[in-house]
Amino acid sequence: MVKAEAVHKRFGRNEVLNGITLEVAAGEVMCLLGPSGSGKSTFLRCINHLEKINSGRIWIDGNLVGYRQRGDRLHELRERDVAGEREQIGMVFQRFNLFGHMTAEQNIIEAPIRVAGTKRDVARTEAKALMDRVGLGDRLDAYPAQLSGGQQQRVAIARALAMKPKLMLFDEPTSALDPELVGEVLDVMRSLAADGMTMVVVTHETGFAKEVADTVVFIDDGVVVESGDPTAVFENPRHKRTQAFLSKVL
């Protein structure tokens, strides 16, 4: 579903990604681990073109992200087409980013109505179902400021799911939460994974990665250091940098 080839990204002179190559199959759950500043969040943001890559290629279902190839030249996609690509990719942010002036329900139905052209009553029915699914069926009318961090993040997941994405990106979804609220968000993600959603998760929750991920990718200094089955990577890390990192976090 996602294929990345030699992805490079610079911010000014700072090389953040130094050639990332990886592949995510449909229905796969991939966890990206690594020290902070290693480039894992940046890579995630490149997948839905929130960041432009400097070289390399990313494809989603065989379509180039952000560009169109004609002959051997790349053409930038128009805003409309980039937006169209993003519709199919849900994203959950570290700091939730719920729309503060809208209730939970309005947050969820905004994009289906404005972007996908869903009828309002259909969107509302779906919003109710999604809120039930994340365990907040009775908080449809709450504003984000009235919800705890964990509840906000669950609404944010519901909002992303409302666009019926084929791929979900999670950018450290539990890092901004109080420890006792982490579990409720991970539960929702676990059930999503069980339903066969393709997920790419940047996380520090090694327990979650071990239990839910099909593949764990360890990134450091903008390159993939090691990847594979979670038990293999966690129990028998082959690379020194992976060992050093895991010894600190496990």
Binding site: N48, L50, E79, R80, A83, G84, R86, E87, I89, G90, M91, F93, R95, N97, L98, F99, G100, H101, E110, A111, R114, V115, A116, A156, R159, A160, M163
Partner: peptide, 27 residues
């Protein structure tokens, strides 16, 4: 208005003008 608001709208497939009118300006 926090940049994250614009990013969240973008990630949902909203256009620049939609984001401005529906998300950024009201806040």
């Amino acid at each position: 208005v926090d940049e994250g608001q614009e990013e969240a709208a973008k990630a949902l497939g909203m256009r620049r003008m939609q984001t401005m009118r529906r998300i950024i300006l009201p806040q």
